[in-house]
Design a protein around this nucleic acid. Structure first.
Lengths: 226, 226
DNA sequence: ATTGTACAATGAATATTCTCCTGATAGAAG
DNA sequence: CTTCTATCAGGAGAATATTCATTGTACAAT
């Protein structure tokens, strides 16, 4: 999930970025409205978080611009304490939700969660099980046939991505975009390397294989043997 | 004591929140059923207060969901005047008590009191014991394998937080938010330092280790070795 | 009131461990 | 044979652990 955060106060944006990354989102930060606009139009994000008060172009104006550009990406506005007018204005210019500063981080997460899922209409169970593979998003534990497996964060994201897209062929580009973030475009073989790591951990000593190569296309996560 | 209040009417929720905070509870408010659900599943509360009529997911449905997720947290339903059907339905879906709006605040307090006491009697002992670790919330004494351990107040809170959230990975942000009460705070490694203090006192000379690092994510409190 | 001691809380500095990624080569597929 | 994929190893860099110095606070002794 790629999020664009447009917020000029350095300590606030650092706080939000760090927290969201801990919650396994990719976050790009823009420190003023203009840069925010450029980033938003050049890349594809799943969510915008906008401060109302911004240098260059303010948050409300940005909302209007994004909607005028037909971006349907959900928008979450951040507004200072007590400025009810901003809220009304924000929601009327196309924002989907708002949050009053200062806020508790868990509240932000809950709202993001609501926005994303409402849109995608998909609920991911924190505990998932498939062909003897169990993953628990609370404890970040992964097991295959009962054997605990230790994954690095990157490997864990990749596995989650495969699970979310099980049964569908995914190209390296698609995988890189989701798992590494869309600022990532070097012609490297990271995806291959990480698929290899993951295979060694979750497929090597077990059957059936779950990660399959589709030559010339990419990879697919499914139960069937080939 | 952490309470999650799920109530969409702003004046009602503000009233309840204020009153409960004066009675020294910590209160999170969700304005619709979906956000309520997310908050409930992501954090640990001692009590839910649910309105029956809510946007997104209604109170009865929430009850059912919480029970299906094996949350044993007591549930107090708020229901509009005279709707006996709601009451019956609520209690049958897993609510522990109900209150008919409008209500007197002291009545709410009395019911909360009763629920909490019932809960304390059956689940949370002021004396908690886990893998050779004993903590006594009355005397604030902590022992590991019978050896008394002296903790500073902050260390004690941190330990309690870990115990309440045992089995779940908690990020630094979440920990800081709950144990330090910070909003916006990054430029510090207090959490790391205190985890280190705590480890030296409760884990260093004992086995199994209880506080585990999950790189890139945070910490988890559990018995398993790694 | 003032000093002094003890300890708690915190941020910064340093040390250590772990993860990520690149680039090269070997191997498989078409 | 050519293109695509798998695998490996090591350095760069990030994340975490640990130590250190500073500040604040409680409280007893002067």
């Amino acid at each position: 999930m790629n999020i664009l955060l447009i917020e000029d106060e350095a300590h606030v944006s650092a706080f939000i970025k760090k927290g969201l990354e801990e919650a396994s989102f990719h976050v790009d930060v823009a420190f003023d409205g203009y840069i925010g606009k450029v980033l938003a139009l050049q890349n594809s994000y799943d969510l915008f978080i906008l401060d109302v008060i911004l240098p260059q172009i303010n948050g409300l104006e940005l909302c209007r611009i994004f909607r005028a550009e037909n971006l349907e990406t959900p928008i979450l506005m951040l507004t200072a304490l007590g400025s009810t007018d901003d809220i009304v204005a924000g929601l009327s210019t196309g924002a989907d939700d708002y949050l009053v500063k200062p806020f508790k981080f868990k509240e932000l997460l809950a709202r993001i969660d609501a926005l994303m899922r409402r849109k995608e209409n998909r609920v991911i169970n924190p505990v998932f099980s498939f062909a003897g593979l169990e993953i628990n998003d609370f404890t970040k534990e992964v097991k295959r046939n009962g054997h605990p497996i230790k994954l690095t964060p990157r490997e864990f994201f990749l596995l989650k991505y495969f699970i979310e897209n099980r049964g569908r062929v995914k190209t390296r580009t698609q995988i890189a975009e989701s798992v590494w973030g869309n600022s990532y475009d070097t012609g490297s073989n990271v995806v291959d390397v990480y698929v290899n790591y993951l295979r060694n951990k979750i497929d090597k000593d077990f059957s059936p294989r779950l990660i399959h190569t589709v030559t010339g296309m990419g990879y697919i996560f499914k139960e069937g043997e080939e």
